[in-house]
Design a protein around this nucleic acid. Structure first.
Lengths: 186, 186
DNA sequence: GTCTATAAAGAGATAGAC
DNA sequence: GTCTATCTCTTTATAGAC
């Protein structure tokens, strides 16, 4: 792995663990084993490196989600697979957590990949819900876009509950509750 | 308002806006108009002051929520009132956002008020759902604790979606989706 | 109680040698 | 491309005068 790669990977880890505000160039250098000079040679500065890291994480999350959402099964089963997919719950969402970072939200450039990833997820989920409505699995009165937002919010909020209590149990409870509400009666 | 009060209020604002990691004693002093000496006279340091601020915010949130949850109406209506209560959505939740702060989560003392507040909310909501089940407003197959977690997660995650997109719309959509799923058919 | 002085360490970067 | 030196500002205090 080249130096720029190592810098990006270390930055991704630190952004996930400590957020943008809590991540210093020094910490990135220590973790990556790169020197000061290397970092400023390959990247313009902290925001530039963070942007590369966030974009990488966003791409990866999209690929992971796509693998589950495009999988086999009925619409309900695919949503269930998404909600129950293996997650390191207590670490939180590497994309969602960035929305609580004041400097990320203040920068259109840094926020863009976050916004696009979440928006893309919402569209995918809305499409699946729509499919479920057509198949009669979900009630016709449901708004697919709204249900998609509820699903995503349950996941993102589940991380908050889990981290507050220090246990993944609350995340799992929230997911089970949502799945019970979505469960086709037929 | 005395100096300790002003320090706590300024800290509360900054914790909400920038989180614990993103809030410096200097910024608190500037906002409160207090001097260095005053702050270290009344508080042991940043963690001590933050603890006082977090406790205050937690108390206030509890009081606000109680006002809505103990209000009039059927269980469904009270949950609806909680979900739709006026919020400054783009500012996020002053308690929930702290779960994304590494230094808060790492400290049992700082995390405690966060955990207790969210836990208390969950119990209140679970009680209301249970009541709704007894009245036949919600299906007997629903687990009140799980639904309570889903409700709280939808709110907390709604803030994430809203802040990602820079608009409160996604929060509202998630809430409408959840209310549609909870809506009694009778 | 509040003020100013001092300070060690870190944040975030630039400059220039190699 | 990488390294070391340097620099300014901020962070998070402590000490002691008033």
């Amino acid at each position: 792995m080249g130096t720029p790669e190592r810098l990006i990977e270390s930055t991704r880890e630190l952004l996930w663990e400590r957020g943008y505000v809590g991540t210093s160039p020094k910490a990135i250098l220590e973790r990556s084993g790169a020197g000061q000079g290397s970092m400023y040679h390959h990247f313009k500065g902290k925001p530039d490196l963070a942007l590369a890291a966030i974009r990488r994480t966003a791409e990866e999350m999209r690929a992971t989600a796509q693998g589950v959402l495009d999988g086999p099964g009925t619409p309900y089963e695919r949503i269930q697979a998404y909600l129950r997919r293996e997650r390191d719950v207590l670490r939180g969402c590497p994309i969602g957590r960035l929305t609580m970072d004041p400097d990320v939200v203040a920068s259109d450039e840094l926020r863009a990949p976050v916004d696009e990833t979440i928006d893309w997820l919402r569209e995918q989920l809305a499409g699946i819900v729509e499919e479920g409505k057509e198949q009669g699995q979900f009630g016709q009165s449901l708004d697919a876009e709204e249900i998609a937002a509820t699903i995503l919010a349950t996941v993102q909020g589940g991380y908050v509950l889990a981290r507050a209590s220090g246990s993944p149990a609350a995340f799992d409870a929230g997911v089970r509750g949502l799945l019970a509400l979505l469960r086709p009666t037929s």
